[in-house]
Design a binder for these strands. Sequence first.
DNA 1: TTCAAACTGTGTCCCTCGGATACAGAGTAC
DNA 2: GTACTCTGTATCCGAGGGACACAGTTTGAA
Lengths: 255, 255
Amino acid sequence: MTVETGGVDKRRLFELLWGTPTGPRRGPRPTLTLAAIARAGITIADADGLEGLTMQRVAESLDVTKMALYRYVPGRAELVALMLEAAIGEPPAPPAGADWRGRLDDWTRQLFDRFRRHPWAQAATVGARLPGPNELAWVEAVVAALTGTGLTGAEQLDVAVLLVGHARNLAQHATPEGAPAGSREAAFGVLVRGREERFPALDAALRGIDPEATDAALDFGLARILDGIGALIAARAADPRSGGAARRGPGGRGE
Amino acid sequence: MTVETGGVDKRRLFELLWGTPTGPRRGPRPTLTLAAIARAGITIADADGLEGLTMQRVAESLDVTKMALYRYVPGRAELVALMLEAAIGEPPAPPAGADWRGRLDDWTRQLFDRFRRHPWAQAATVGARLPGPNELAWVEAVVAALTGTGLTGAEQLDVAVLLVGHARNLAQHATPEGAPAGSREAAFGVLVRGREERFPALDAALRGIDPEATDAALDFGLARILDGIGALIAARAADPRSGGAARRGPGGRGE
DNA sequence: TTCAAACTGTGTCCCTCGGATACAGAGTAC
DNA sequence: GTACTCTGTATCCGAGGGACACAGTTTGAA
């Protein structure tokens, strides 16, 4: 079980994430590094999740006392933020010669991979956060890929939100090692079996699933999203003031 | 700060979520109800988040001792699961006369609303979970809406995953009370300002944003997703074995 | 009618974990 | 060399989840 600190020292976290590594002058030289601490935390969280991440364990793995960590990090919450920034890392260079679609496709898969390698990153990205340089660089990559496509700035950011969400969500369903074949059938099947009258459509859908087929939810969703974006870009190219984000279904209730 | 119990008693949780309310015979009649406990927990979490949810506080609000709760719930993790199931509630009836698109549009907005009303639900839906009857009913609604569209069972489930993800992710960015106008500009702007050479595309995108415009990320993403699904359905109608989920961009690396 | 079994709520205790604080040693600037 | 400052440490505290034994209550069986 792990404690999830509610309060985050935003001022201090901003300095940690965005500040320049100002070397202090007086006093003994620090034995640790922010990067080393984050790395140690990542190793632990990768193995045992955020619940397994305790200041004590991080300190032990660095051969220091627990309280020594507080000389570098204000608290656990900020440590997790640093870990996230380090685990996500810099965005990859866009594939050579790729158009916007190729770039976004690759981008999403790479991000998915990062999330899958660090399952705790899921939990570390809930709620309002202060993004770090790396995180912002990922967003920059999406916007850059969409520059010149006719989408507005707001829409470009919307795409980033959409793709981040997809990558993040699918990492949740996937095991750390590849996509599980027909695991959904197993998970849902147990619940639906015996309750077919309550979940008739679900039952029918599950019956149609080939347990041998690999789970392609990432591919499927990504293809749909990119198709949708492509349609908008094409429409914009034909008529610059066409179909924005206001399209709603017949049952949509305006908010 | 709150403790997030790692281990969940799956066997017991299954009974709690799916079991029939078997009335025990002997002994004093219980003063509490699972539903009442969940409701109390929801009230607290709505106000102070999951960090504010402690067994002590839940017990106090019910005028019982902390340990009395353990007669009903194995632990905190299971309580959160019950709260989630209750907070999500039953899915809404599909809008009368709506096609698949109208149904899914409405469905997503309704789910978004549930998530927005209970911000903690975000954090409560990370990682592999055992879905409750309500949660499964929501999935059933999506699959039912897509029955007869030509999508395979697996694809119908993929759509459900996609839409849940979108609703969930956007609830994270939205404030509990409506969409914040141009808040993104404020959040990102501070970080980009002064670092324009590092985030040139982002800077350009932010400059193009009207701070007065309402944040339409939910609408935008939803429209793109539904457009993409519509394109697939149309293609399937024209040629039953056309474009599945395998379409990849040039940079896509097969897994 | 009696009594044992089963179940409920309580009081007490323990462990883990984040964090505050005071202190001792190390290194640097004057 | 000396005063200042920064680092790591030791100790302590409170919050929180959960175990456990016990007392009271209700019901079914004798």
